[in-house]
């Protein structure tokens, strides 16, 4: 059975999709990634799709699912490297990928993830502060 490797780098999980996905492979990636987020307590997931030549409604839905599931598990997802032709096709197909963060390349994607996580930490501190006040 084919598998898409998931690499761990600090607080992040990195996935580079190098093959054209068929449905089962995409479904496996979805469940593997969500389990990895849980196991490693990753704060961010970066998915590089620069080598993917087509994203249809099924793949689009999987990408959306990964982002929503990770969010529930307190991790941010950024999709990077989408080919322009794929972006145009997705919009015409009717799949705007709302709720999924995107960046042009891996480098910008990493910067975006780091920013998101910093903001997240700040919010958390803020909330605990409020809780202390209300307890007093």
């Amino acid at each position: 059975m084919d598998k898409i490797p998931i690499l761990r780098m600090g607080h992040f999980l990195l996935v580079t999709i190098q093959v054209d996905l068929y449905d089962q492979l995409a479904l496996n990636l979805e469940s593997d990634l969500v389990q990895m987020v849980n196991k490693t307590q990753a704060k961010g997931v970066l998915i590089d799709i620069s080598a993917v030549s087509i994203v249809d409604s099924f793949m689009g839905r999987i990408i959306g699912n990964i982002a929503s599931m990770s969010r529930i598990l307190d991790a941010q997802t950024v999709v990077v490297g989408m080919q322009p032709a794929v972006a145009i096709t997705l919009i015409e197909l009717g799949l705007p990928l709302t709720g999924v963060h995107t960046a042009l390349n891996v480098e910008r994607g990493m910067t975006l993830l780091k920013e998101k996580i910093l903001i997240g930490d700040y919010d958390e501190d803020d909330e605990t502060g409020d809780d202390d006040n209300s307890a007093e």
Binding site: D23, S53, I54, D56, I88, T89, E92
Partner: peptide
């Protein structure tokens, strides 16, 4: 063109599914 290829293959992928 690459764009039309992508559109065609995406449509084909939907229909074959």
């Amino acid at each position: 063109s690459l764009l039309n290829q992508t559109k065609l293959i995406t449509a084909a992928s939907e229909l074959v599914r």
